[in-house]
Design a protein around this nucleic acid. Structure first.
Length: 354
DNA sequence: GATGCGTGGTC
DNA sequence: TGACCAAGCAT
């Protein structure tokens, strides 16, 4: 990697922040829908959606715009029924984000009289809002000089300060926050924070950083930027098999609602017991999906036409949650299902139609 | 402080 | 193609 040596100190004066701000003002993505608004609620929605989720996913699949059309303000979201809230979130994952967003809307109504607080600690107290999100809202929506540290900032800082230790430790995170607090400027913190993150997203790339195009290369101490940041990594992938039932009766599909988990309130194909071998319904579909550090082999079993096997003998369903039948035409499309099950159902239905 | 959480994209 | 990752948070 070709990269000029460091010649300037990020902490000396406001040159570093000024360079980030200038770069953002001149070349930033000002067309993003959440940059077309000054509404703190809309900024909150965007920041929650963007947690651990790529810009392209939120943007191209229309989640942000659709959400604001359906829930244009905290009052609309606070008054909504949770199933509809989850349905609007379907496919984004981390469904507690949607539930917390509604809790936050209710807190805005009930504890703040419907007006959005501009103080960092009050923003931070909203459900689902952690240190990053609070800083992002305070700076972007209110112009406060609050720091942000996300995955992009970690990568930029690891290189800027040539940080050759693991970044995914509490001690390292503490240092990144200290650096962020020291560097965030009183002048134009909105453009600085947005620019710092966008720099990580578009220039300070993970595997091939574009140092020749970087506006802060003069301040960067890294000699081998592509080797940073260093991570310990998470747990190893666990491979599991999941057998579920596809049962249709009178045009209605049997689904199970998860109860205790964080996918609570979402509907899935009911689980079949592991040892359900002898009289098991035939395999209709086998597919794979990943969830956190699990790699799941999803096997859908059932009777395409005549589900007599379902009513014969004991209930073949191993269920921890509530079971219910949903009309395939009208109800199944309207309820919230995790993506793997949604895809499986649609694949099977399309196959039967053909 | 470690762990669990959803999904889609990337190389 | 499998491991890694992306605008983190709550418990």
């Amino acid at each position: 990697m070709l990269k000029a040596p460091q010649t300037r100190d990020p902490f000396a004066g406001d040159g570093f922040a000024g360079a980030v701000v200038e770069w953002f003002v001149e070349t930033g993505r000002h067309d993003l829908p959440w940059r077309q608004t000054a509404d703190p609620y809309a900024i909150l929605v965007s920041e929650i959606m963007l947690q651990q989720t790529q810009v392209a996913t939120v943007l191209e699949r229309g989640y942000f715009t659709r959400w604001l059309e359906r829930f244009p303000d905290p009052a609309a979201l606070a008054a909504a029924a949770e199933p509809e809230v989850l349905k609007c979130w379907e496919g984004l994952g981390y469904y507690n984000r949607a539930r917390n967003l509604q809790k936050a809307a209710r807190a805005l109504i009930e504890e703040h009289g419907g007006s959005f607080p501009g103080e960092l600690d009050k923003i931070r107290a909203l459900p689902g809002v952690g240190r990053y999100t609070a800083g992002a809202i305070a700076s972007i929506a209110f112009g406060r000089a609050a720091a942000v540290v996300d995955g992009n900032v970690v990568r930029v800082f690891a290189r800027l300060f040539d940080f050759r230790e693991a970044v995914d430790t509490p001690a390292a995170q503490k240092r990144f926050w200290e650096w962020a607090e020291r560097l965030v400027p009183e002048n134009r913190p909105r453009e600085y924070n947005a620019g710092l993150m966008e720099l990580g997203q578009r220039v300070c790339l993970r595997t091939s950083p574009a140092c020749l195009a970087c506006p802060v290369a003069d301040w960067c101490a890294a000699t081998d930027p592509a080797a940073l940041p260093i991570k310990n990594g998470g747990p190893k992938t666990v491979f599991v098999t999941e057998r579920v039932l596809f049962a249709v009766r009178d045009g209605r599909l049997l689904l199970e609602r998860e109860s205790g988990s964080r996918r609570r309130g979402l509907w899935k194909l009911p689980a079949l017991p592991e040892d359900f071998a002898g009289e098991a319904p035939p395999v209709m579909l086998e597919t794979k999906y990943s969830i956190t550090h699990h790699r799941v082999d999803l096997i859908v079993q059932g009777w395409a036409g005549d589900p007599t096997g379902l009513s014969a003998g004991p209930n073949p369903v191993e269920s921890e949650g509530e079971l219910a039948w949903f009309d395939l035409q009208t109800e199944v499309p309207a309820i919230a299902m995790p993506s793997p099950y949604r895809r499986a159902v649609e694949t099977i239905l399309a196959r039967q139609k053909a």
